[in-house]
Simulated assay, not measured.
Amino acid sequence: MTPNEAAVVVVGAGPVGLALAVGLRLHGHDVVVVDKQAEGANTSRACVIHPRTLEVLEEVGVSKRLVELGLQLQQFSIRADDRRLVPVGFADLPTAYPFVTMIPQPVTEQVLLERLEELGGSVLRPYAATGLTQTADGAEVTLDNGDVIKAQYVVAADGMNSTIRELAGLRMPGNTLELSLSLVDVRVDGGLPTDEVGLYFAAGGMLVVAPLPDGSFRLVAEVPDAPEHPDAAFAQRLLAGRGPRKGKPQVTEVIWGSRFRIHERVADTYRAGRVLLAGDAAHTHSPAGGQGMNLGLRDAVMLANALSTALAGEDAALDEYATTCRAEAIRVIALAHRLTRLANVPRAARPVRNAVLGLVGRLDKTQHDVAMQLAGL
């Protein structure tokens, strides 16, 4: 049964919406989370949680569980074939989490959902938000079954094509890059490092190789006209043409695959009266550096604190959230843009790029600065 009212309605039960709801429950507020997908319908896109994000998630009590379920890696390397151009280590970073945690997005969502349920919350599925009205002292969300939920605040955590953002009249301008990316989860017979995330700069283009907790590997590559359903032969060509040479890894199974284009967009503002934006509803960018879900999770925790303050009567906290998190999104988008452009320089320039990276990558300062940027510190 749909509740008639709540302090906050969160539209979207991905990692961002769930983390926000957990934060609000910890502050003692009633929150309704609505999602249009049936339970278990999500597929895995994001697969890494960075050190700074784990620090922030301590506030909602899930960091320990995520680390337990994930695979901890202390190395990130930019490579060309078997050559390591830029080694990046996380072991010496000033954090209690000196590693990146590889963990598929559905597992992260399950951990957050269990935490929400532990706190007495739940998710209404499958219901789409189709209407939004605002008044001076609240807002109303209309669902596709005709039910209306009254709230003091509404949060759009419903992704890049956010319905709530559009209904609130908020714009998210930006660019769609002429890049087609293929994402494939595979099982491989030998030949790939299991202790690092590798970014391979090859003559044929970029390839990311990331080990996952179950022994599989995530491959991400920029390719013309990426297939909708990549098969083992396609994944094998990516590894043979762009990955390591010595081990000669052989793809034995494709677990899941997808394709997408890169959008670089950020909302003009994260707030319109009683409506707030978070996660991909507020910003989207290249997956380079694995920053997207991490940025959204940090949005969620800060917004939970800001909403709790606003519900106590200090509305300015929401403006601070909107300003601070938008500035952080612009910084992260710039980082992801630089990494994407570096990975996709014209073919003729790629040998020069690799030679320069090989020299600059030897410097301790370069390695430290890249580690701090990727870690979110």
Score class of each variant (00 low, 15 high):
residue 9 V to M: 00
residue 9 V to N: 04
residue 10 V to T: 14
residue 11 V to T: 03
residue 15 P to R: 05
residue 15 P to C: 13
residue 17 G to Q: 11
residue 21 A to W: 00
residue 25 R to D: 04
residue 28 G to Y: 08
residue 30 D to T: 15
residue 30 D to L: 08
residue 33 V to L: 05
residue 38 A to T: 11
residue 39 E to Y: 13
residue 39 E to S: 15
residue 39 E to V: 03
residue 40 G to P: 03
residue 42 N to Q: 14
residue 44 S to D: 10
residue 45 R to D: 07
residue 46 A to I: 00
residue 50 H to T: 01
residue 50 H to N: 03
residue 54 L to A: 00
residue 56 V to P: 05
residue 57 L to E: 11
residue 59 E to P: 06
residue 65 R to Q: 07
residue 65 R to F: 00
residue 66 L to F: 06
residue 67 V to P: 06
residue 68 E to Y: 01
residue 70 G to Y: 01
residue 74 Q to P: 03
residue 74 Q to K: 12
residue 76 F to E: 03
residue 77 S to E: 15
residue 80 A to T: 14
residue 81 D to M: 02
residue 82 D to M: 04
residue 99 F to A: 10
residue 112 L to H: 05
residue 122 S to G: 08
residue 125 R to H: 03
residue 125 R to A: 01
residue 126 P to C: 00
residue 130 T to W: 00
residue 134 Q to V: 04
residue 138 G to C: 11
residue 138 G to S: 14
residue 138 G to V: 13
residue 140 E to F: 06
residue 149 I to V: 14
residue 156 A to L: 10
residue 157 A to D: 01
residue 161 N to S: 10
residue 167 L to A: 12
residue 167 L to Q: 14
residue 172 M to D: 08
residue 174 G to K: 07
residue 178 E to V: 00
residue 180 S to Q: 08
residue 189 D to N: 13
residue 190 G to K: 09
residue 199 L to G: 09
residue 204 G to K: 01
residue 207 L to V: 05
residue 208 V to E: 14
residue 210 A to C: 10
residue 211 P to F: 02
residue 212 L to I: 02
residue 219 L to I: 00
residue 220 V to D: 01
residue 221 A to W: 07
residue 221 A to C: 06
residue 223 V to H: 08
residue 228 E to V: 11
residue 230 P to E: 04
residue 232 A to V: 10
residue 232 A to I: 05
residue 234 F to D: 10
residue 241 G to K: 06
residue 241 G to M: 10
residue 242 R to M: 13
residue 246 K to C: 02
residue 248 K to D: 15
residue 255 I to E: 13
residue 255 I to G: 01
residue 262 I to L: 13
residue 262 I to K: 08
residue 268 D to L: 09
residue 268 D to I: 08
residue 268 D to Y: 02
residue 269 T to M: 03
residue 270 Y to P: 12
residue 271 R to G: 11
residue 275 V to M: 09
residue 278 A to Q: 07
residue 280 D to G: 03
residue 289 G to E: 15
residue 292 G to T: 09
residue 293 M to P: 08
residue 293 M to F: 10
residue 295 L to M: 14
residue 302 M to I: 00
residue 314 E to Q: 09
residue 316 A to S: 13
residue 318 L to T: 09
residue 321 Y to E: 04
residue 322 A to M: 13
residue 332 V to L: 11
residue 333 I to G: 01
residue 334 A to N: 15
residue 335 L to E: 14
residue 336 A to K: 08
residue 340 T to A: 13
residue 343 A to N: 15
residue 346 P to I: 09
residue 347 R to C: 02
residue 348 A to H: 12
residue 363 L to V: 15
residue 376 G to Y: 06
